[in-house]
Design a binder for these strands. Structure first.
Lengths: 349, 349
DNA sequence: ATGAAAGCGCTAACAG
DNA sequence: CTGTTAGCGCTTTCAT
């Protein structure tokens, strides 16, 4: 069937023209007589000629492809960003090479690997903190780099203000009269030092202090990311005598776990407990979960668009581009009502 | 900084060897004196030499990359498969080019595009039905092809038995005494003719018939995929006089919507309503949703592994490889109890 | 408008 | 063990 691959020279001689002309036809150059073009096209069709991407790439010095590094690619928030990236790259005609980074080893290997010449035309790093040394190494190769949901001085990047987000969530609960507010976040994994979580916690603390509430250490909990884990943390929290009246979970996935835990112990949301999440993924809407919405897909689209510009040599906003956050109030948060058990101590400063 | 790229010839002369030797060092050939190797490596290091992927690929006739076509990449079930694929390809040293296919136009464009010579070494099509003509066209190019969760005669593929899955779910509900069982599935979108849903429905019908129950047309509903839509369908169903006592949703996402709808109308699960889903994604566990588990990640891993074998020229199981399904019983299904409202008519044949 | 020829940077076969 | 050389298939001046 598929005989030896037919190459441009064969097309050329079969059409009675030079390879140059065939190449011009292939690339839509206007300077080819219409008749000639037709003839060449016909031959291409007939011979089943398919150009070699590798060869043209080598001649052109570009791959028309981009690398995207993401951590934990099964998390809805990451998928949301990735979807935005993939859509833009597709529209811009770039192939999108996706790498899932679960360990520091993988991160380092791929960071090095994509620095290879002519492997990709640019790189997008999503939600993975980079050391200065890593950034410098990439810069030294001249590989265009854009960060999404990660910070590193001097690199074009699109981020959100996680501290502000933490404050937004906490302020919402405070405004509803809550004072015993717990925080459930996740521990950064495998030595990659993820920071968004810590920042949201920082926002939580700041908001409490600003409201004159002393953050209670026993109400700040962290564990491996995941709904189930968050649920069991919540369970523990809710069974205390001085249980919180509200919980701020650092992601919707974790908030969903909290909701489930509440249900399990007969704690009614939002009557007995207010819960707020972060991200606004699909589940949040489905569960009626109040949350802090961040534009996930848009962050990906924006980052991808910036990278494309960088590759083309077009100007790009230097440094950080910050996307807006928004409180989405649904039915998981409500005003504090005095609970049926012993009145809760309010810790005020 | 990044001066003109240094190429292999410069490394060779700087190290006082021929380019052949440098190439051998690069590719870990054993037939290089250790001392020579060290010298070359040192020069490479010092000059900051980075090999050109494009050039070596052209010489080798391979790209070391694979295309993956997926539909609706934000759906958890798809992400699960994709994660499996990405993991295996990474381990095997292939770059994974991901395309999200939302329309028939995108599907056709990419199917054609990846047939280009030397663009990728192989292609993985996930959950997208292919016409015979499309399969033939790809076969004619000689591009290695593997299907995951899709069927097409003659192509190596990994699938599940959706009919059996539908029966498994329905039988579970029947065994619990339910007779008025509704089905909520989704309509195939944008002319791509997805079939899993129809097959699950077919399984539902077969199981009912086998149990002597006549499928009630008014209990079979389909709508665009998504939790919210499924929820409103369920709402409608539950407000009927002859509401179903159990609902089989063709995906966990839709089942989650059903759960939410039930809650909204004060219908208690599983006391007043049993609900079963399909897939077993993370949410299912979190919600205590009974479901039919299919090995999502594993299907991706297997498919990817098969493709790698195909590329290497190793033998691969011909035709279809069917993965097992499993009923996972959680807390959303229970034995039928007579409901408080007017006794439900049981339709039996 | 088009043909000829010089790369693009690497690998592998061949000769030593 | 190692140097030399001929491709890999396309793009692009440079003439004409």
């Amino acid at each position: 069937m598929a005989g030896r691959a037919v190459k441009i020279a064969e097309v050329a001689s079969a059409a009675g023209v030079g390879v140059g002309t065939v190449s011009r036809v292939l690339n839509g150059s206007p300077q080819v007589r219409d008749e000639t073009r037709k003839r060449v096209l016909a031959v291409i069709q007939q011979l089943g000629y398919r150009p070699s991407r590798l060869a043209s790439g080598l001649a052109l010095g570009a791959t028309r492809s981009v690398a995207v590094l993401v951590p934990f690619m099964t998390r809805p928030s990451v998928v949301g960003r990735l979807a935005g990236i993939v859509a833009v790259l597709d529209a811009e005609g770039f192939d999108c090479v996706v790498c899932n980074i679960e360990t520091a080893e993988q991160r380092d290997r791929h960071l090095r690997g994509f620095a290879d010449l002519h492997r990709v035309d640019g790189m997008l790093v999503v939600s993975i903190p980079l050391h200065q040394g890593q950034v410098d190494a990439i810069a030294a190769t001249g590989l265009p780099l854009v960060l999404v949901d990660a910070d590193a001085p001097g690199v074009p990047r699109v981020v959100i203000d996680n501290v502000a987000g933490g404050m937004l969530a906490t302020d919402h609960l405070l405004a509803l009269g809550h004072r015993r507010i717990a925080f459930i976040g996740d521990t950064s994994r495998r030595g990659m030092g993820f920071l968004s979580n810590a920042r949201r916690l920082e926002g939580y603390r700041r908001a409490l202090r600003a409201a004159g509430v002393t953050p209670a250490p026993e109400l700040v909990r962290r564990g491996p990311h995941g709904g189930a884990v968050a649920g069991s943390i919540a369970l523990d929290l809710l069974q205390r005598d001085d249980a919180p009246t509200a919980i701020f979970a650092a992601s919707d996935t974790q908030a969903a776990g909290v909701l489930q835990a509440a249900k399990k112990v007969g704690c009614r949301v939002p009557r007995d407990l207010s819960v707020i999440g972060f991200d606004d993924v699909e589940t949040a809407e489905l569960l009626g979960l109040s949350t802090i919405r961040q534009p996930l897909a848009r962050s990906g689209e924006l980052g991808a668009r910036m990278l494309c510009s960088l590759i083309r040599g077009d100007p790009v906003p230097a440094g950080r581009t910050t996307l807006p956050l928004e409180l989405v109030r649904r039915t998981s948060t409500a005003e504090l009502v005095t609970r049926s058990r012993a009145p809760t101590l309010v810790s005020a400063s």
